[in-house]
Amino acid sequence: MLDRLQALADRYEKLSELLCDPDVAGDPKRLREYSKEQSDLQEAYGAYTEYKEVLVQLDDAKAMQGEKLDDEMREMVKMEIEELSGRKDELEELVRVLLLPKDPNDDKNVIVEIRGAAGGDEAALFASDLYRMYTKFADGQGWRVELMDASENDLGGFKEVVFMVSGKGAYSKLKYESGAHRVQRIPVTESGGRIHTSTSTVAVMPEVEDIEIEILDKDIRIDTFCSSGAGGQSVNTTKSAVRVTHVPTGIVATCQDGKSQNDNKAKALQVLRARIYDIHRQEEEAKIAGERKSKVGTGDRSERIRTYNFPQSRVTDHRIGLTLHKLDAVMNGDMVEIINSLTLAEQAELLEKENLALS
């Protein structure tokens, strides 16, 4: 571990030199690449620098124990050793986590798709609740949310809604949301007061640049049609909505919430690119795991990653066995505890795999 940390520190310091080089300063591409790389290394570099300082201080304090000291000074040295030893252990754990392989998509913006699944109108209403939850969470993180496409039912729920979340670390926090979300509550359409179980599915995909996924013009078909829903006097009068079909895969993306046909085309291509990339990524993960894993599942009532129980004000994440009795807060975007717990669980799993590989 120390060898890896020293190599990291050497690279960080080399990058500092490179960023002061006039040739690099005059090359926007290299400047951007080096700045990004150094930024990614900064937290680990800082932790390692502090770790080395703590080791020096700890050695000095232990050396003092061999000297002739009065009782008060001896007690002070003892307390200092205890504090430094505790900090040393904390920093060792921190740098172990910081050295774990990083998901290359973690810093990217995301495209989120939510669909009402099992449960009809109630599933669509729950999909709109999830959209509001993620919007509130994004606001709290200082991120920007941009609606890309939506299909509503008669009750104001979403049969499907697609939106982009832009902000630092958006994918690193929202990637755990992919899967089937189950709700248990009395629907507004239920006259007998019975609790129903419905599901909505969520897919979280990293935004993909043109250079990562190349879509050839000859491989896409573009159709235009009149927008529907809110949008001003041009709705249903001009063909500003765009549907893009990737012919080789049959993947389709639609956008009708932009200000113009060109705007909708650009957004639809963003979604299309993300969907194609997501399929490639799933295939690669399936090869590694030895089996194909679905991104969001079928939406069947029995298949879920999380349950939202309204009568008991309870939310349970089934992947890590976490249950919180503050459903109202969660639905209002207070998702930090859930996401932090999922992050820690993933880190613990990666650490265990690394320890097994080293043993």
Rank of each mutant, 00 (worst) to 15 (best):
D154N: 11
C226N: 15
N153V: 04
M164D: 02
G193W: 05
E146S: 13
G193D: 04
Q184L: 07
V202L: 07
Y171P: 07
E212H: 07
P206Y: 10
L216E: 14
S191V: 13
S200A: 15
N236P: 02
L174M: 12
K218L: 09
H196G: 13
I186N: 05
L174H: 00
P248C: 09
T224E: 08
D210K: 06
V208S: 00
S200I: 06
Q184P: 04
G179F: 11
R185C: 07
D210R: 11
A180T: 15
V204G: 05
A241L: 12
A180K: 06
S234G: 12
V242P: 01
P187D: 05
R144S: 13
A170H: 12
N236Q: 14
F163K: 00
S151K: 07
E207H: 08
S172F: 00
D223T: 08
T237K: 15
K175H: 15
R243L: 07
R221M: 11
Q233P: 09
L155C: 07
S166D: 12
D154E: 15
D217L: 06
S178M: 07
E177D: 08
D219E: 15
I195F: 03
S178T: 15
N153P: 01
A150P: 01
T189P: 02
T249M: 01
V235Q: 08
V188P: 03
D210N: 14
G169K: 09
E177Q: 11
G167M: 04
A241G: 03
V145R: 03
F163C: 05
V161P: 08
K159D: 00
E152H: 12
V145K: 07
S234P: 04
V247P: 07
R144Y: 05
I186W: 02
D154A: 15
E146Q: 13
F163A: 04
A230E: 11
V204P: 03
N153E: 00
R194Q: 11
A170N: 02
N236S: 13
R243V: 00
V162N: 02
D219V: 08
I213W: 02
A230M: 08
C226G: 05
L147P: 02
T224V: 14
W143L: 00
I195Q: 09
A241M: 10
E214T: 14
G157P: 01
D149I: 01
V183M: 13
K159M: 02
E160Y: 01
Y176H: 15
P187R: 05
T224I: 09
F163S: 05
T199Q: 03
E207P: 00
R194D: 02
S151N: 14
